[in-house]
Design a protein around this nucleic acid. Structure first.
Lengths: 210, 210
DNA sequence: AGTCATTTATGACCGTAGTCATATTTAAGA
DNA sequence: TCTTAAATATGACTACGGTCATAAATGACT
């Protein structure tokens, strides 16, 4: 039974935990630098551990795979982005505009680091439904879901609409269009493209007949 | 200048070409068996070449990568499927029904070999825009495009609609929903899901306000 | 049949992600 | 301070996809 009561300010971490954080940060910093310097594909785990001054096994103690490290990067960025989205959505009134602005905003932040984005979209696909990372990989869907529910309340969206399904189709369109845009050789406006498509979803494509 | 004119029936292939076809088929047969027996991921190229009685290098003479073999499988299946689609679409009158039936039909054939389908969807994502396989990977989009253009002519679809964009959003929804369905633990009706979503696209989700 | 150029086959070899038995470090109690 | 259990670090090793220089097979021509 321990009798030691610790009064610690900035220093309430054991040596172990401090070293753990240090190592994790070291891996993160070194790989961030290498990824920028020579691209993700061209950076090997061996290089990372050599530059970080740790053993190879250690890397895999912290990240179960190279992919896990990438996902960690992507997640960090995603968190930053999604925190800004609320402000972005507030800039407009109608649900349609809110959704378009949100998607364009996310796309723009993604454009800044195309390679990482590609990697993320790719890994998002690969690890689809692998249970643990559901919260984050579904978060765009969740944001859209809130916007649509809000839209139903304010009558921007039909009350008969299944908000969950609607959020799904919009995020499907977003991902697909983003891929098309990221990998496309020809340069076109993502904003215009996505606006047009969201417009179709709002107004429908049905003609006179049924 | 050759004076030999060959009248050949079933046998107009040189020894080389016969052996080539034989080897290709051997690889195809063996890997098909192994994939079924122990799954795609668990089947290595080394195993395939060992069972096929060929050298490892030979495999890569026929398929530049393991992925290429997978894509070959997927392509074979896709061809079969897409040939049947026309009949499927003819069963209904309205464009809406035609599209739904087409997608449900494709989904059903995919369901028969979930693992291969996952692999294909996955590879479809990975090799997105890698120039060479555009014709086939875009073929669902093309079919949808034709259906929509036809729909515009028959007034099932608004004449103001950009058929290309519409085809894109529908195939985006299809792929996304298919993934959701393939990887989902809970069992639900894909037909119902996709019908609902296509319905939304036709009728629109917009409410009273703008 | 003999010669030679072209096509195809081959397996030793390589790069890289990931594993695991063993060694080292840390925390905590006596 | 000494002992011991648990956490952490480590690098030799494995597995696997893919490469490449070299060898064998094939076909065209004489």
């Amino acid at each position: 039974m321990t009798m030691v009561i610790m009064y610690q300010g900035e220093n309430d971490l054991s040596l172990r935990e401090k070293k753990k954080i240090e190592t994790r940060n070291k891996i993160f910093d070194v790989s961030a630098r290498l990824f920028k310097e020579k691209g993700i594909e061209n950076t090997t785990v061996d290089e990372i551990v050599k530059e970080a001054g740790i053993g190879k096994g250690t890397f895999f103690n912290y990240f179960p795979s190279k992919t896990a490290l990438l996902l960690y990067f992507a997640q960090q960025k995603e968190e930053l982005t999604y925190n800004q989205i609320k402000n972005e959505a507030l800039k407009s009134v109608s649900t349609r505009e809110k959704i378009i602005n949100t998607l364009v905003f996310v796309a723009k932040t993604n454009e800044k680091d195309k390679e990482l984005t590609k990697m993320f979209v790719f890994e998002y696909m690969r690890h689809y439904g692998s249970s643990e990372d559901e919260r984050k990989s579904r978060s765009l869907s969740n944001i859209l879901y809130s916007l649509i529910e809000d839209g139903v309340r304010k009558e921007y969206v039909k009350s008969t609409i299944d908000a969950k399904k609607a959020a799904e189709i919009i995020s499907a369109i977003y991902f697909h269009s983003l891929m098309e845009w990221l990998w496309s050789k020809i340069d076109y406006s993502f904003s215009d493209d996505i606006s047009g498509k969201i417009g179709m979803v709002f107004d429908g494509i049905a003609g006179g007949r049924t």
